[in-house]
Every structure is written in structure tokens, then in C-alpha cells.
């Protein structure tokens, strides 16, 4: 076991029974033991067996990351813990909704940038747009940074979902 102090960012997928309190258990574990959560998403992914998939993005030293996985694995409703970052190439995506309120040149500029980011307009009024963008987290952050001076008034992000590349499943 290495005692390296280097901080690493890991994306971890956890398959859990979709029962009341399971999310509180996972979040309580992170807060109770002082681990970082950069993002956490959850939804039922198997409606027959009532399984939910949690995607957690966290950071810490290699020893802490190992701890997080072991602690997650020990929760009773947890079926499987998979460290996507450690286990090879994977895809990470996030969805972003941004509301921009502006007129004139700023409104045109917002549309132009949205086009570059392949954002979709999902709602429009004379004075506002709601853009939808998907992509890697830093792409969404870049989009937000550009929209800020153009009248951005509201942001909503889903947090990261992730899946491994290739034929292997969780």
C-alpha cells in the first residue's frame, strides 16, 4: 500500500438496493468520515430488481480512495462498487441547464456561443433562453463562464454520470 500524499480525483459507480435511506447512508458515510464529494448522482436503473446506480466523484490520497471504496462496500444495501477511474477508460457526462436573460447584441452572442457548444434551446421568450448542454464537466464549466457576462441568471447541473468503455459491464 502506498502512503503517497498526492490527491487524485476518482469517479466511483455504486450499485445499491433502491430502498429508503440508502442515499442518506452513502452521504452520511462521506460526511461522517470527512471524505470529499465533488458530485453525486443517483437514479433507479433496474426497475425490476429495484437497483439504483450512484455515481460519485471524489478526491483524496490513494489511501483515502481505497478507504472510500471499502467503506462503501461494507454498507448492507450495496451490491457493487466500481472505481471507474482505476479500472480503465470510461465516459463521463453531465447535463446542464442555463437560463440567460438579455436583449440585443448580448442575446445574439449567447446564441452564437450556444451553437459552438452544441447547446439546444429548450425554452425561449422575447427576453430569455434556456439552454441545454451535455458533455464533460469542464466543458459545462466553460460554457457557464462564457454565459455569465451575457445575462446568465440561473444554472442547474445534474452532476456526473459515467460508464466504462468497451464490452465490460458493472
Amino acid at each position: 500500500m502506498t502512503t503517497e500524499k498526492r490527491i487524485e480525483r476518482h469517479t466511483i459507480a455504486v450499485l445499491v438496493d433502491n430502498e429508503p435511506g440508502v442515499l442518506a447512508r452513502v452521504i452520511g458515510l462521506f460526511s461522517g468520515r470527512g471524505y470529499n464529494i465533488e458530485s453525486l448522482t443517483v437514479a433507479e436503473t433496474d426497475t425490476e430488481q429495484h437497483l439504483s446506480r450512484i455515481t460519485a466523484v471524489t478526491s483524496g490520497t490513494p489511501m483515502v480512495i481505497e478507504q472510500i471504496k471499502a467503506q462503501l462496500g461494507r454498507l448492507v444495501p450495496v451490491h457493487k462498487v466500481s472505481d471507474l477511474t482505476a479500472e480503465g477508460p470510461h465516459v463521463e457526462r453531465e447535463l446542464l441547464l442555463v437560463k440567460v436573460v438579455s436583449r440585443g447584441e448580448k442575446r445574439v452572442e449567447a446564441l452564437r456561443i450556444a451553437d459552438i457548444f452544441r447547446a439546444r434551446v429548450v425554452d425561449a421568450t422575447i427576453e430569455s433562453f434556456v439552454f441545454e448542454v451535455t458533455g464533460a464537466a469542464d466543458k459545462l464549466s466553460a460554457f457557464i463562464a462564457l454565459m455569465k457576462p451575457l445575462g446568465m441568471v440561473d444554472v442547474s447541473r445534474t452532476g456526473v454520470v459515467a460508464i466504462s468503455r468497451g464490452a465490460q459491464a458493472l
Binding site: M1, T2, T3, M63, E66, Q67, A70, Q71, G73, R74
Partner: peptide, 15 residues
């Protein structure tokens, strides 16, 4: 018996 006990505070060569 608890995997989370291993390497929690003291790193070990063999768990």
C-alpha cells in the same frame, strides 16, 4: 474480516 480496516490508518504490506 472487514476490508475497510485494512490500510485505514496504517499501511500494510499484506492484507
Amino acid at each position: 474480516i472487514d476490508p475497510s480496516s485494512i490500510n485505514k490508518s496504517v499501511p500494510v504490506e499484506l492484507g
